[in-house]
Design a protein around this nucleic acid. Sequence first.
DNA 1: GTTGACACTGACCGATTAGTCATTTATTAT
DNA 2: ATAATAAATGACTAATCGGTCAGTGTCAAC
Lengths: 279, 279
Amino acid sequence: MDRKQLIMEKAIELFAARGFDATSVQQITDHCGISKGAFYLSFKSKDELINEIIDYFMKRFTTGVDRVVKESTEPERKLFNLYLYLFTEFQRHSDFANMFVKDRLHTLNEDLLIKIHRYDQLMNHSILHLLRECYGTKIEKTKYELLYNIKGLLDIYSHIIFTYHMPIDANHLADVLVERTHLLANYSQKVFINEVMFRNFNEKMNFEIKNVQQSIDSEIKYLLDILTNPLEVESVEILNKELQKSKPSHAIIKGMLENIKSNDQCHWLIYLVQSHLEM
Amino acid sequence: MDRKQLIMEKAIELFAARGFDATSVQQITDHCGISKGAFYLSFKSKDELINEIIDYFMKRFTTGVDRVVKESTEPERKLFNLYLYLFTEFQRHSDFANMFVKDRLHTLNEDLLIKIHRYDQLMNHSILHLLRECYGTKIEKTKYELLYNIKGLLDIYSHIIFTYHMPIDANHLADVLVERTHLLANYSQKVFINEVMFRNFNEKMNFEIKNVQQSIDSEIKYLLDILTNPLEVESVEILNKELQKSKPSHAIIKGMLENIKSNDQCHWLIYLVQSHLEM
DNA sequence: GTTGACACTGACCGATTAGTCATTTATTAT
DNA sequence: ATAATAAATGACTAATCGGTCAGTGTCAAC
């Protein structure tokens, strides 16, 4: 398990510098100080590696954004925190973010693109929720436009940061972006991206949306494999049993989720269960 | 010469769909219906192909933007025309734009990245000029920020158009973007990107800026090679002689530029000479 | 009909790739 | 100490890559 972590970290460094296609498995294993054979003990293929890397970080960012949006502070503060969180995370995991910004990864298989699109949709959902909290019905017509304007700003500043290797003051940048968001939200009148178009985006990627229950099952199975803390293992087991019931107790579920909250690896499961039960 | 055009067009189609690295020379030649050997009669290498493609389109876009900015209509109208021009061009050459948006091309040699960066700087210069015309001293502090905010918007809408293969109403989109630009220009107070940072961007790419005179010389040499219209050939020759003089006549230069204006292939030379003499 | 100039072909080359597997090394159990 | 098991190795394969070049086909000149 430790081995996988090592390979992923070292691989990201190389992917960030050279891109995915241009980095060979041999280069990765050299950089790790292991043999090529050892790589294939941890990963079935090079594709599986990039798959797991993207999964790991996208889960992390998605749950992180969701956590910020669900905070119990005033909405405007949350907007600031959202920007702050994203740029702080981008800096903390600059190699991954760099890889993601530079490589558009369109070389990869369709499945991976769809997966990325799904995470993107989850993040859209969270951001739209926050925007509704901040600006209410005022932005009813312009909310989708606003969403993409914000994403445009996020993209360009990320791009600047990574192409010029700039260390930045995330607080300062977040402050500026909140001002820009207020401007766009409060004064925009004209609309290009309407609801029909927004739905169209998501339908063009017409993959069968994976059953949430199924996602939860596989995530529980995965966690039971890797978790070591007995309390956490037991909590996940109880949670699993409870979810099988036709009328699961919200109290038990909430308690179990609380038990595993402190472990980062469990955040995706928490996010999935909460979404499933609309807690 | 026709052969080169064919290869470039077919190659762009494949690059747009699969990316540069993932497209082999064999695939390109198959798609053209020619042999692999014939490819190397037109291009020294695969790198030279991508180089010429990028050169061709970047010259085209850069001169196009410059032309819009130098129009003699009122500034606000020019801003609209700028957006309109860019999105119209992106649609007209959607394969190239798609390739450029998807592939970040960072796999390629450093020279090409620097070249792209130079074109980017030229476009920044034009846009900043226009913004100064539109908003005057009001945006003195925020102009660099405004420039990148605009670029963020351009990026995200381009991204949407290409990933979802949407046909768009460029007039409508340009109208919306003009409104957003006005908002950001008139009400933004806080600043993240200041002049120091902006200069930093360009210094980080610390290539020796190629002598403009040198660029003009090589462009003239190139045009004399490919031009067929006798009037144009003669005009370029006269222009060349005039530029060699210590005190070239602006009247003659202006006239010669006018003579070749109608040929698209000459626009880059016109742009270079005008920049050189600040006409 | 012969010649020379030219565009064009596709088999071929060396290099590099992802992935495999017989063999060796390390660890654990007895 | 020995046997049994697991972990790790790197030479190997088959495929693909960009790029080359001896040879083929075509056409105009004489």
